[in-house]
Design a binder for these strands. Sequence first.
DNA 1: AGATTGAACAATCTGTTGATTATTCAGAAA
DNA 2: TTTCTGAATAATCAACAGATTGTTCAATCT
Lengths: 205, 205
Amino acid sequence: MAEKDNVRCQIIEAAKKRFSHFGYAKTTMAEVATDCSMSPGNLYRFFPGKLDIAEAIATETYERDLEYLRKLAVAPNKNARERLHDLLFEELRRTYNKLESDPRAFEMATVISRERPTFANWMLANERRILVELLDEAERRGEFVAEDKELTAEMIQSATMKFRYPQLWSKLTLPKLERELEGVLKLIVDGLCPHHAQRPQVNAA
Amino acid sequence: MAEKDNVRCQIIEAAKKRFSHFGYAKTTMAEVATDCSMSPGNLYRFFPGKLDIAEAIATETYERDLEYLRKLAVAPNKNARERLHDLLFEELRRTYNKLESDPRAFEMATVISRERPTFANWMLANERRILVELLDEAERRGEFVAEDKELTAEMIQSATMKFRYPQLWSKLTLPKLERELEGVLKLIVDGLCPHHAQRPQVNAA
DNA sequence: AGATTGAACAATCTGTTGATTATTCAGAAA
DNA sequence: TTTCTGAATAATCAACAGATTGTTCAATCT
């Protein structure tokens, strides 16, 4: 079995090189197979299809990113608002820059999100787990309140949808997106209803 | 000039019929022209092109909708939260049902939003004006607080993006969208930070 | 037996052709 | 002169053939 995983890994590495040099559409299964010194048919013992190789690559790099995002979400020396800020901004900047600078990455993102909608759902579920951790810790410290944290996390994602795959949904530049995210974050954290924290003193006669 | 406006109107009516019966792509300028008993070339004295006819139709019906939305936003017997709720939900339900029940309307919406991105911006600007009215009135009554109302309106739109053209961005059903909008609305109104309104009494010794 | 191949098959892409149709504009009608 | 026409033009679309390529599987190898 260790051998099998090794081969899987080899295939992923070969495909990663091809995809990033020539793009997803322009690499053939035959080429990937030759790079691994095997026949095209043999690839199918390790992956159901071409798209699944792409998905495996995406999963791998995404999981690395996720690790870092979790660190931001639970950074001990920052308050909840800062941590939420860091989390959302890191996500925005990271994906924006990746898709902006690398047309191959953009192609892969487009293909996967079109052909494998469940992949996007899986990513959202992962991030939601991080958000719930953040909310839990925030409530413990009395910084945020939220009865149903799972639901609240979902709503935060809903409200920040626009910033998750920026260039698939709008043509805004990064600075404009950052300005908007800043505003939405403020809205989410403070809300529209007046806070009475500013005047906790008695004011009635 | 009144005559010219009349002809414009006649063209719009003819196109409206064709578009809604056979779809935008399947109606030709020649057909619209014959319906108006004129030559195809003559249409271009009234509209720069086919898309502009579609845009004129969309503008017309949208402006009627807008009238009603404004009424909801300033309904005198409701509080700010309810008005914001009604406004956003009416928008969601209206566009969802229109696009869901009428494939022709869906086609037109798709074409216009792809080919005329400024049209969507114009719609957003209109709705933003209504939101600002709502926020102004809400602040007057002490229900909401927001320093920069224009900016806040923009952020509300940003956070509720997903519900504006529901079926262009997700495959969610109306009930699920409504549930999500309800949650996002709560988030926007209440925020995550604890409100001290629940205990306005003295609590320090 | 299980692993691997590579030819066969099916699905998709590419380029091309012909037709359809949006748009223009020289000239006719008013 | 101004308004309108309709043939000419250019852009887009539909359909098709041929080639390319993802996928399968009977046969081969280990």
